[in-house]
């Protein structure tokens, strides 16, 4: 009996570890629209999403971008825009999200995060 205890404990430990190792992917509640991580989808998918959900999809990516820019600069999107407008063009919802749309149309294989990064570079360059 005692001989079986060690293998059993080892087996249970391995099972517990495997459960931790295979973590489930993040999923939205099934009735919702959108994707769990809008920054990590291919531009090709984004291009299809904006056909039937133009404003909602753009807003999702802009919200993601706002968090990304804040993490990089410590500034809110309004502060970044105000800085950028001192030397560059003026920005609003349409022009910001239009940048994502244009980038993704030109780069369907890229991830949406690349579109966000591309806009961020332009905004930060303008604000310097």
């Amino acid at each position: 009996m005692n001989r079986l205890i060690k293998p059993c404990l080892l087996l249970i430990s391995l099972l517990l570890l495997s459960d931790i190792a295979i973590a489930e992917e993040l999923k939205l509640p099934p009735g919702m629209g959108g994707v769990p991580d809008i920054g990590a989808i291919p531009c090709d998918v984004f291009n299809k999403m904006i056909v039937v959900g133009p404003l909602g999809t753009k807003r999702l990516l802009l919200t993601w971008a706002e968090g990304y820019y804040h993490a990089k600069t410590g500034k809110t999107i309004n502060e970044i825009i105000q800085d950028a407008e001192k030397t560059g063009q003026s920005w609003n919802f349409d022009s910001l999200t239009g940048h994502f749309v244009d980038y993704c149309a030109a780069n369907p294989e890229a991830l949406t995060a690349a579109a966000v990064s591309d806009l961020g570079e332009q905004l930060l360059n303008d604000s310097r």
């Binding site: 629209g33 994707v35 769990p36 998918v45 299809k48 039937v52 959900g53 999809t57």
Partner: peptide, 15 residues
């Protein structure tokens, strides 16, 4: 209202 489309498919990446 700016709703996002519901997604489908095994990877959740199909409109």
């Amino acid at each position: 209202w700016g709703m996002a489309p519901r997604m489908d498919g095994a990877d959740g990446l199909r409109v």
